[in-house]
Amino acid sequence: MSQSSFPHRHLLGIEPLSKGDIVTILDLADTFATISEKPIKRVPTLRGKTVINFFMEASTRTRTSFEIAGKRLSADVISLSASGSSVAKGETLMDTAKNLDAMRPDVIVVRHSSAGSPHWLAKNLSCSIVNAGDGAHEHPTQALLDCATIRREKGRIEGLTVAILGDITHSRVARSNIHALGKLGAKVRVAGPRTLLPEGIDRLGCEAFDRVEPAIEGADVVMVLRLQSERQARGLIPNTREYARYFGLNARRLAAAKPDAIVMHPGPMNRGVEIAPDVADGERSVILDQVTYGVAVRMAVLYLVSGAPEPDGG
């Protein structure tokens, strides 16, 4: 599990990773997961390293998770958001980022509403870049934590059938998961209303359905995506009530999945819209386990991109 088996300075997305790279991260995350279960939740692995969380879009889970991940590895973690930074004064992203880079951080974790912005930063800055979500493009650590959760619950990923339901067009979680699960050998189905299924998504290697029932049929994992209320304003769905009735995951629809199927959601949830509360809180739900695993996965990612020596604690 040394860094030499992970040949990337940045984590910009899942698409450029090999299956081996993903397995390296997941294996290391399993090791780091034990740290969070100890009374003293800190190891000195990244002591002396500086991580900047540069979040230009609202986030609770991801930002906190990266912050905790960095701190549990003893890195110095600084978090910035758009409203409290000079971006609010009209500075360009590139100028803000170059100023941060000039303070010599080891890693900048970036979230931005523009797809591709981490790629642009990686080309122009000297530190490592970790993509924490870029527009509707990728959210690689979410897919990695989803894979880690599935692997732990199911013991494997290869050969599983995973149904991803909801707004595929605007979902970076969907794209990263299509790549990650596909590389690990799962069969991926995506399903949602036609207006929220992008033309050509099947060319990423998944099967697309415009109804959720056939996607859920026999699935091992049912992953539900958040429906943003903005979609209604743009006329892509008539209203959330109708969406819930035809596309929401409820107990009746879930019954078509395998009896031991698990239910996932990247959060934040709209209870009663894309997912019924009893399903979200039911015994098949692993939604909070995803969040727990998120910390371990991000510890692994920060470790691998930051160029630290071999982990000296388990």
């Binding site: 230009m56 758009a82 360009t92 803000t96 509403s113 642009w120 527009g135």
Partner: peptide, 13 residues
């Protein structure tokens, strides 16, 4: 270049 337009109405600028 990119502008940090997180506050813009069009989120996918």
């Amino acid at each position: 270049g990119y502008r940090s337009e997180a506050t813009r109405a069009s989120k996918e600028a």
